[in-house]
Design a protein around this nucleic acid. Structure first.
Length: 583
RNA sequence: GACCUGGUAGCUCAGCUGGUUAGAGCAUCUCACUUUUAAUGAGAGGGUCCUGGGUUCGAGUCCCAGCCGGGUCACCA
């Protein structure tokens, strides 16, 4: 809740003309005895979707949503009421809405004081207009919430042509709430994401597997090879890491006697961002006892076929220029055959040097820290991966790039591992899990050697996990499915930001309210003191947290905007504020 | 991290080899209009041209530095 003082401050923020008009309307509504932000519930009986699908005239309805796209024609008006399902046309007739002498609700409230984007509740009766549009004739109108900022004015023609679309990715991601209101397709993508997750959960629960929660804060960031985000626990005075994977915890639960466990794991990796990578992302991890990776392939292809059906009603799904067929079974190609086919290299019988030469021949940069597994991985990634558009299981990875995977039952040097490739991208990664504790210990030690050789992706040793394995883990198959990528494949998106509600962005700078602060310790000229606060630096801390270049620009921008009678600051001068405090 | 590219009104965008007071459509405001649907007709208001510096008689436009995005690559899933 905002205090009165704060409300007053916000009203003094610099507003666009349209925002100021809307704020004036808030006051005008109150002056008429209408609360623009009422506390009481508004009972809703119908939503636009079902009402339109099975439309009948003469149905009494109560609906609520945003007022959009008004078409005012004197004593009668049409508008769209947009709710969670879509939107429905409403019709307001002055004399039916206001049967008495006082026409204020129509003439003043609806026509003047309400704007596009405001939440209203209506009561009325369904009917078809002359042109056959399903509509609601409004007999009662309630203001539910007044919007101060105007929504982007997107207009859609009957044939689907969109005018003045809200498309700037920066604005769409930073203000997803606006994106969702104005771009119906965006809503559909996230509805599909929800459907996929719910369907997976239903299908796993039906099999008797159990959803679990395991630690996000870990003292050893294990289960994958990646740079973690580090933090610190004050009470224990120890470093902690946000998990890069949850694999080792789920296996501990298999040791503990659950024979099917899964978790939708939010993982965090402190690495680059692009259209297939976000610092936090979701992986579905599933571990099932007494199964192997062949069983897991069948489980996976069946699941994906079902998911496509649930989202699209068919297994044929458009993805960019391709149509992906999610119907099982999927092709199974060994890593050796994949490389043989696309790079004409037989990795069997090639030692590290031979592989290094093969990589060089294909123009792949190598260095001394790369072992045999890493070299094979490079060959596959560079020469093969992008060829697999239709769902394909790539099987049997070399042992030294799979430290948690069981050795292959009849191919020495290989493991029982597969990755599922779709549209040239890895979507899932699965193993027959390594449950031989002595082998696991040896594999961790090999990782240590790799790490000493300079491979900064080598895994940490988790001694408690080794101890757990020594108590005995049944044969188990496990899989990790990249949920974000899966949703991309299922919703025809090529960027991970389109399937994350709030993708990571550089934080935005805001002007904040007034406060008293002393900047003299930084060496800021006294005349600038109050302006620093107004320009969005309430305390010296905010100044020091920002980059000097940024502060310099913001302040000079503020000076220009407000036509301050002060000399412009030099970058050097601002930079000095930083050095002064550190000495 | 490197390269390419963009930032002009609330939204989508024009703005030529630098040259009067920076434009359009939609949105907003005023007026008209009782079945419209990108409603329509008439009129009006609205701009730190991302920021700072430079070149110039003159910069939205050219140069330098920076801020914030997007794309490609590298790394990764």
């Amino acid at each position: 809740m905002l205090g009165t003082a704060q409300v007053r401050t916000f009203e003094h923020m610099i507003r666009s003309e349209q925002e100021q008009q809307r704020i004036d309307s808030v006051h005008a509504l109150r002056a008429k005895g209408i609360e623009p932000y009422p506390a009481a519930s508004f009972e809703v009986t119908h939503h636009s979707g079902p009402l339109k699908e099975d439309f009948k005239e003469g149905v009494k309805v109560r609906m609520a949503g945003r007022l959009m796209n008004r078409r005012i024609m004197g004593k009668a008006s049409f508008a769209e009421l947009q709710d969670r399902e879509g939107s429905l046309q409403i019709y307001l007739n002055r004399d039916e809405l206001c049967p008495g002498e006082d026409k204020g609700l129509y003439n003043d409230v609806f026509k003047k004081l309400l704007d596009r984007g405001d939440f209203i509740g209506v009561e009325g009766e369904t009917f078809l207009t002359q042109v056959g549009e399903p509509s609601v004739k409004v007999t009662s109108l309630t203001v539910l919430s007044k919007a101060i900022r105007p929504l982007p004015a997107v207009k859609v023609e009957e044939d689907g042509t969109v005018h003045d679309a809200f498309t700037d990715p920066e604005l769409r991601y930073r203000m997803r709430y606006v994106d969702l209101v104005v771009n119906p397709k965006v809503k559909e993508t996230f509805a599909a994401r929800s459907t996929i997750i719910r369907k997976i959960r239903d299908s796993f629960d039906a099999k008797g597997w159990m959803e679990v929660d395991t630690p996000v804060l870990q003292s050893i960031p294990g289960g994958a090879a990646a740079r973690p985000f580090a933090t610190h626990h004050n009470a224990l005075d120890i470093p902690l890491y946000l998990r890069i994977a949850n694999e080792l915890y789920l296996k501990r639960l298999i040791v503990g006697g659950f024979d099917g466990v899964y978790e939708f794991s939010r993982n965090f990796r402190n690495e680059g961002m692009d259209r297939t990578h976000n610092p936090e992302f979701t992986v579905l991890e599933l571990y099932v006892a007494y199964q192997d990776y062949h069983w897991m392939m069948e489980t996976t292809e069946t699941l994906f076929g079902d998911l496509a059906q649930a989202v699209h009603g068919t297994t044929q799904v458009a993805l960019g220029a391709h149509t992906i067929d999610f119907a099982p079974p999927y092709a199974r190609v060994t890593m050796r055959d994949a490389i043989l086919e696309h790079a004409k290299v037989d990795i069997d019988g090639l030692d590290e040097e031979g592989l290094r030469d093969a990589c060089q021949e294909h123009g792949i940069d190598t260095d001394e820290s790369m072992g045999r597994g890493k070299l094979i991985d490079e060959l596959f990634g560079e020469k093969c991966e992008h060829h697999y558009i239709q769902p394909t299981f790539i099987c049997d990875y070399p042992t030294d790039m799979s430290p948690l995977t069981k050795a292959h039952r009849d191919k020495p040097g290989y493991t029982e591992r597969f990755e599922l490739m779709i549209n040239g991208t890895e979507v899932a990664n699965a193993y027959s899990e390594l449950n031989d504790p002595l082998d696991q210990r040896a594999r961790f030690e090999d990782q240590l050697t790799l790490s000493e050789r300079g491979d900064d992706e080598a895994m940490y040793i988790d001694h408690d996990f080794l101890r757990a394995l020594e108590y005995g883990m049944p044969p188990t198959s496990g899989i990790g499915i990249g949920i974000d990528r899966l949703v991309m494949m299922m919703t025809n998106q090529t960027s991970i930001q389109e399937v994350l509600l709030f993708p990571q962005m550089r934080p935005e700078a805001f002007e904040s309210g007034a406060g008293d602060a002393d900047f003299s310790a930084l060496g800021v000229p006294e005349a600038w003191n109050e302006h620093l606060v107004a320009a969005g630096f309430p305390t010296p801390k905010e100044v020091l947290d920002a980059k000097p270049t940024q502060v310099h620009q913001r302040l000079n921008g503020f000076r220009k905007k407000n036509k301050l009678d002060l000399p412009a600051l030099s970058l050097e001068e601002v930079t000095n504020w930083y050095s002064d405090t550190s000495s």
